[in-house]
Design a protein around this nucleic acid. Structure first.
Lengths: 203, 203
DNA sequence: GTCTATAAGCAGATAGAC
DNA sequence: GTCTATCTGCTTATAGAC
């Protein structure tokens, strides 16, 4: 199975074509799900011929892999932009992260869920796996900075529970981000506080 | 799209055939994912001809729908069996629920995840939707009995966060149920406690 | 009731013209 | 670089024999 794009789009026109293909794939995934994601459908919606599509991607799997890569990069970029705003309150930092994650995932909830499932069945390249891990690592580093013990495990758990709650909200069609962020923060902070020795309050 | 089984298996032999088909489908979903789930593959693994398969199910979607229905019923049965053991400590009750959910989902983690995704793209019958809701309702009733406010919302959140954490554990290949249960309980109880007025400890 | 054989259609992928 | 045309193989689904 080929997962890499055939050519990295260094030229302007090519980049536009690749973008159109990926956007079309995302659009289909979002509204009709994995079943409907065929190379023909993608090419047609993208306004390019099937032949051109295969110029850039060796197959359907490669399109999905690149989509995953890009989504991860977007989220990671958001998180890293946050790094500068990182304060000295664990509570604020965690909630800021959650706000970013919620905003990201709720933009296109169906897309996120489909990609998450695909990710578990696709043998992803090491680069993409590293990308996903980087998010957890980032959270772990933040937790550690605030003196949370077992930071890596806690980071994995926080990411997982947030993902679960945000996905559920997406499925239910919740639109109020503020309420959702509040509830996810409650779960995350509750998790963190619950493990702490009594009297050791969050700052 | 036809979602209902063609005939409800009232006879013994028929029931065995239906079971074989569903078990084969589950097996394929678990190890190879949605893509590999074709009617031919299912029929072959089940040891019945493709013709027979279509005697019982009008299509692939119907097999998936029935699989979802059965999985839900199993989990619900586990939960209801628990009802009798329900004590007067919210903490114990919640953790018992989590123990049941973890045991259920970790039996066949890949199956659960695949079905969860399918569930969001398949136009399920009202009966199955009701089944999923019943689980949340059950948790909500339990929370309410213990005086938790906004019980329905809390139940939805707890189910969602548990699902997220358990799924992640399944993907990561975690095998120690006890550790996982502990962490999910921590998140759930943390969520519940975090909302309570200070000094109002869990019992 | 179950099987074999097969029809019909579609998906993935490529070759070759422009 | 992009398109059209096309091929191969697979999937769904049915018809009809036993």
């Amino acid at each position: 199975m080929l997962l890499e794009p055939r050519k990295r789009p260094h030229q302007q026109r090519s980049a536009a074509t690749v973008d159109a293909i990926l956007e079309a794939a995302a659009h289909i995934l979002e509204r009709k799900g994995l079943d409907a994601l065929t190379t023909n459908a993608v090419a047609e919606l993208a306004g390019v011929s099937i032949g051109s599509l295969y110029q850039y991607f060796p197959g359907k799997a490669a399109i999905l892999a690149e989509l995953i890569r890009r989504e991860r990069l977007i989220l990671l970029a958001g998180i890293e932009r946050m790094a500068h705003a990182s304060g000295d309150s664990l509570k604020d930092d965690v909630c800021l992260l959650i706000r970013i994650a919620v905003a990201h995932q709720l933009l296109r909830p169906g897309l996120g869920r489909a990609l998450e499932y695909v990710e578990t069945t696709l043998p992803l390249g090491p680069e993409t796996a590293k990308l996903s891990n980087e998010i957890v690592q980032y959270v772990a580093a933040l937790l550690e900075r605030h003196g949370v013990s077992e930071a890596t495990e806690a980071a994995r758990d926080l990411v997982a529970l947030a993902k679960g709650m945000i996905d559920a909200a997406g499925i239910a069609g919740e639109s109020d981000q503020r309420l959702l962020v509040g509830r996810v923060c409650r779960a995350a902070l509750g998790y963190l506080e619950y493990s702490m020795p009594n009297g050791n309050e969050l700052t």
